[in-house]
């Protein structure tokens, strides 16, 4: 179980994430909805150890993650697919994937996992020797998710995976994410694309100005007046 308790992130005096608390279990898909600047990215980066947590805590199965350096957080079983994807553009697809198996927890099962990634994303198998920076946005996002899977995570954190992708590509991506979830991984997705993310999530939270202002099952949120007003232009 991944648990946030009163997690607070500051940039100088600016409060980016304000005492956020929630948890998720393996195999569960949770979406955090919020507008630009709501603190979604900061929240994920803080969980992954990329930026410091000012107050509160993050725990994984009871073990404290706060203050653990990012590369060790990856080895504990948290994989972040950041905004901008975090792939190495000037390396090939296969190099990116193999590099993703750097954490010691992932080494032994590297070949097995890469077969699993190729099974979920057949396109990557076809393009294993291609340089990532020459690929389309959707394909690069596949590399990013594949690379994250290679570290054998218990929890996968995705920062706006749909950003900049065509609707049909977004649909395929979320179908692939559903298969990743079937392998037992818990997914924490932050999104602005409310419709598709709620369709694939079990439950969700609303993040506004760094604070959680609402929560519920996907169905509840889909029918919530505030969500409809804020994200869906009033009606669906």
């Amino acid at each position: 179980m991944l648990e946030l308790k009163n997690m607070t992130v500051r940039y100088g005096k600016h409060l980016a994430v304000d005492a956020v608390g929630f948890g998720l279990t393996k195999g569960e898909v949770v979406v955090v909805l919020g507008a630009n600047g709501a603190g979604k990215s900061s929240m994920l980066k803080a969980i992954a150890g990329m930026i410091p947590v000012a107050d509160g805590s993050v725990t994984l199965d009871g073990d404290l993650l706060t203050g653990v350096p990012a590369h060790q957080v990856t080895n504990r079983g948290i994989a972040l697919v950041p905004e901008g994807r975090g792939v190495v553009g000037r390396m090939t697809v296969e190099e990116n994937l193999r590099l993703g198996a750097t954490p010691s927890r992932a080494r032994a099962s590297e070949d097995e996992t890469i077969a699993q990634v190729f099974d979920i994303f057949p396109r990557l198998a076809e393009r294993r020797r291609q340089f990532v920076h020459t690929m389309s946005g959707g394909e690069q996002q596949m590399v990013a998710v594949g690379r994250a899977m290679m570290s054998k995570p218990d929890f996968l954190l995705l920062d706006e995976p749909s950003l900049g992708l065509a609707p049909i590509v977004v649909g395929d991506l979320f179908k692939a994410l559903a298969r990743v979830r079937e392998t037992g991984v818990g997914l924490l997705i932050v999104e602005q694309n409310v419709k598709i993310s709620l369709r694939h999530a079990d439950r969700g939270y609303l993040l506004e100005a760094g604070r959680i202002t609402g929560s519920g099952t996907s169905e509840e949120l889909m029918n919530d007046a505030a969500v409809r007003h804020a994200f869906l232009g009033g009606d669906i």
């Binding site: 990856t74 792939v87 190495v88 390396m91 750097t102 994250a148």
Partner: peptide, 24 residues
């Protein structure tokens, strides 16, 4: 080698390297 691959990744994408579990 994997060792070399890790070093190259740090050179090419220093900010993303920790996400790969690399101790930069």
């Amino acid at each position: 080698t994997r060792w070399g691959m890790i070093l190259r990744a740090v050179a090419l994408a220093p900010k993303s390297a920790p996400l790969f579990g690399i101790d930069t």
